[in-house]
């Protein structure tokens, strides 16, 4: 599904170039559940944002679902991202002004899905995640775990084949964290490929594979 070959991310500084990532070559297959681990500043989040096509200023080759990302223009990359990738953030990043329902509806509205269809999809997801009762609440009225549950639901609502999660349990109590990881495990079992960045060795055990980074270089 994903192939990286000699991917590099360099910041040109006055004292010489700084390599945030160097010579990253990596293959992720469909159905994998990969945990990227490493110390702070090791390049985990940078790698995740390259995989998520948020960052375009990098070198090397990146193939996603057969598409050579490094050869695509900005517009095509954006289309690829919209079609195949969902994001889960450590700080949930729910939109404060929107209700749970509206937060879930947002990715669909950006994909020009008709309102009727959006209603049906959002209702399905609310039901699937057991948050129907919370649909009219605002994020500030939810616990951290509930917010992240909505965050995961939002990432999945457009039916992406790849979920990228940046420290998805970083702001949660351990019980809530475990619930989220179980959810990821279940989604992975249903066929969704998942790549998570984590500091937690326990969370990494939910995955099928660990990629370790140190100072921008893959060490395992």
């Amino acid at each position: 599904m994903i192939t990286l070959r000699n991917v590099e991310k360099v910041y040109p500084l006055k004292g010489g170039p700084f390599y945030a990532l160097r010579n990253i070559s990596l293959t992720i297959n469909e159905g994998d559940f990969v945990s990227i681990m490493g110390n702070s500043g090791s390049g985990k989040s940078t790698l995740l944002h390259i995989l998520g096509l948020h960052d375009s200023a990098w070198g090397g080759e990146y193939t996603l679902l057969g598409e050579a990302v490094h050869k695509l223009d900005k517009k095509r990359r954006f289309e690829l991202q919209k079609k195949h990738i969902g994001f889960v953030f450590q700080s949930y990043h729910l939109l404060d002004d929107l209700t749970v329902y509206e937060n879930l509806e947002i990715p669909l509205s950006y994909r020009d899905i008709p309102k009727k269809e959006r209603e049906s999809v959002v209702c399905d997801v609310l039901d699937k995640f057991g948050i129907v009762a919370k649909k009219d609440l605002y994020p500030s009225q939810l616990s951290g775990g509930q917010q992240q549950l909505v965050g995961v639901a939002r990432a999945l609502i457009a039916k992406p084949s790849l979920i990228l999660a940046d420290e998805p349990t970083g702001n949660l109590h351990s019980d809530q964290g475990r619930e989220i990881m179980k959810l990821f495990k279940q989604l992975n079992a249903e066929g969704t490929t998942i790549v998570q960045v984590t500091h937690s060795a326990e969370n990494a055990t939910y995955g099928t594979r660990i990629v370790r980074l140190a100072d921008g270089v893959m060490v395992g």
Binding site: G52, H93, L95
Partner: peptide, 16 residues
């Protein structure tokens, strides 16, 4: 800025 970044990450185009 972060809200806009989230919206962009969720698929919002620049025009949106």
């Amino acid at each position: 800025a972060r809200e806009n970044a989230v919206r962009a990450a969720l698929g919002a185009t620049r025009l949106q």
